[in-house]
Computed example of a mutant assay.
Amino acid sequence: MPRTPEAVMLFAAGLGTRMGALTADRPKPMIEVAGRPLIDHALDQVDAIAAKRIVVNLHYRPEAIRRHLADRANIAFSDESGSILETGGGLRAALPLLGPGPVFTLNSDAVWTGSPALAQLAAHWDPDRMDALLLLLPAPHATGFRGNGDFFLDTNGRIARASGASGYAYLGAQILSPTRISAISDTVFSLNRLWDIAIAEGRAYGLVHQGGWCDVGRPEGIAEAEALLARTADV
């Protein structure tokens, strides 16, 4: 089994309710930022690692994403039209398409600048020590992030849950071993459950992103993301 993951799970099944009227006629990944749908910004990160297998999960208005990606021969779709499964359940449902071993996972509601996100993770992944490697930024540097942070990061690179004080924001990109997913009996669940197992076993790590990032989970995030991209283009 290859040490570097060969498959990517691209999460695109969210309802996008925080986007209000913008998702009345389209799924959130099809909202445009700087003239391109969000899912294309995500696929830029995927294409930088030449993944062998890409799985996109679908729920709300899935036909729009299927049409948009129809020319991408290396993309398979995991259909969650019956019931949205959250991130953990969605990953488990897609495992037959993803194949064995660890996988990259990537959210489709952000834009990135700097070094390609998944390539950074690949360069630091060590399956002998890790079951999870999450890409992070200090919370104050994560554009559009609300809160004090999701995790603390120790000097050895291990993560722990942040509580109160300022920590690091999770950017929606990671490498994850799904081995322990069998310990979870629920059909619908968050990847937080797998992270908690990995944290308890000392096998959850973080990596600080070398670049910028902006969450596009709310309407105001579109302008923030376009400003981030414009600043980078001007450098």
Rank of each mutant, 00 (worst) to 15 (best):
residue 106 L to D: 15
residue 136 L to M: 06
residue 97 L to D: 09
residue 137 L to K: 12
residue 100 P to N: 12
residue 138 P to S: 08
residue 102 P to D: 15
residue 133 L to S: 02
residue 147 G to E: 09
residue 112 W to Q: 05
residue 126 D to S: 02
residue 96 P to T: 10
residue 172 G to C: 10
residue 126 D to M: 02
residue 92 R to M: 00
residue 125 W to E: 04
residue 114 G to W: 01
residue 99 G to L: 10
residue 105 T to A: 09
residue 160 A to C: 11
residue 125 W to L: 01
residue 94 A to M: 05
residue 93 A to P: 01
residue 164 G to Y: 05
residue 122 A to L: 05
residue 101 G to M: 15
residue 158 R to E: 12
residue 91 L to F: 04
residue 92 R to V: 03
residue 100 P to S: 11
residue 131 D to G: 05
residue 128 D to F: 01
residue 92 R to E: 03
residue 139 A to R: 10
residue 144 G to C: 14
residue 98 L to E: 03
residue 147 G to C: 14
residue 95 L to N: 04
residue 160 A to S: 15
residue 104 F to A: 02
residue 153 L to W: 08
residue 168 Y to D: 07
residue 122 A to F: 04
residue 129 R to F: 02
residue 131 D to Y: 03
residue 98 L to Q: 06
residue 172 G to H: 13
residue 145 F to K: 10
residue 148 N to T: 14
residue 114 G to T: 10
residue 94 A to Q: 05
residue 97 L to C: 04
residue 163 S to V: 12
residue 134 L to S: 11
residue 109 D to N: 14
residue 150 D to N: 15
residue 116 P to L: 00
residue 122 A to C: 07
residue 170 Y to S: 11
residue 117 A to R: 01
residue 159 I to F: 07
residue 169 A to L: 03
residue 112 W to I: 12
residue 163 S to W: 08
residue 150 D to P: 14
residue 108 S to V: 07
residue 146 R to K: 09
residue 104 F to W: 00
residue 96 P to I: 07
residue 168 Y to V: 06
residue 150 D to I: 12
residue 108 S to G: 13
residue 158 R to T: 12
residue 110 A to I: 05
residue 155 T to C: 08
residue 123 A to K: 03
residue 142 A to M: 11
residue 166 S to E: 15
residue 109 D to M: 11
residue 154 D to I: 08
residue 139 A to K: 05
residue 145 F to L: 11
residue 126 D to Q: 01
residue 144 G to F: 06
residue 134 L to M: 12
residue 154 D to W: 09
residue 132 A to V: 07
residue 154 D to N: 13
residue 161 R to V: 14
residue 147 G to T: 10
residue 96 P to R: 08
residue 122 A to G: 06
residue 112 W to A: 08
residue 97 L to R: 10
residue 94 A to N: 03
residue 150 D to V: 11
residue 112 W to P: 10
residue 122 A to Y: 03
residue 144 G to P: 09
residue 167 G to Y: 11
residue 144 G to M: 12
residue 163 S to P: 11
residue 161 R to S: 10
residue 120 Q to N: 02
residue 102 P to L: 15
residue 95 L to W: 01
residue 91 L to P: 01
residue 114 G to F: 06
residue 159 I to R: 04
residue 99 G to W: 10
residue 150 D to C: 13
residue 159 I to K: 05
residue 166 S to K: 14
residue 143 T to P: 07
residue 121 L to E: 00
residue 127 P to G: 00
residue 161 R to K: 14
residue 118 L to D: 04
residue 171 L to S: 09
residue 115 S to G: 02
residue 146 R to L: 09
residue 131 D to T: 02
residue 141 H to C: 11
residue 152 F to E: 14
residue 129 R to K: 06
residue 172 G to W: 14
residue 107 N to Y: 14
residue 161 R to G: 09
residue 133 L to T: 06
residue 143 T to F: 01
residue 95 L to C: 01
residue 99 G to V: 10
residue 98 L to H: 04
residue 150 D to W: 09
residue 171 L to M: 11
residue 95 L to S: 05
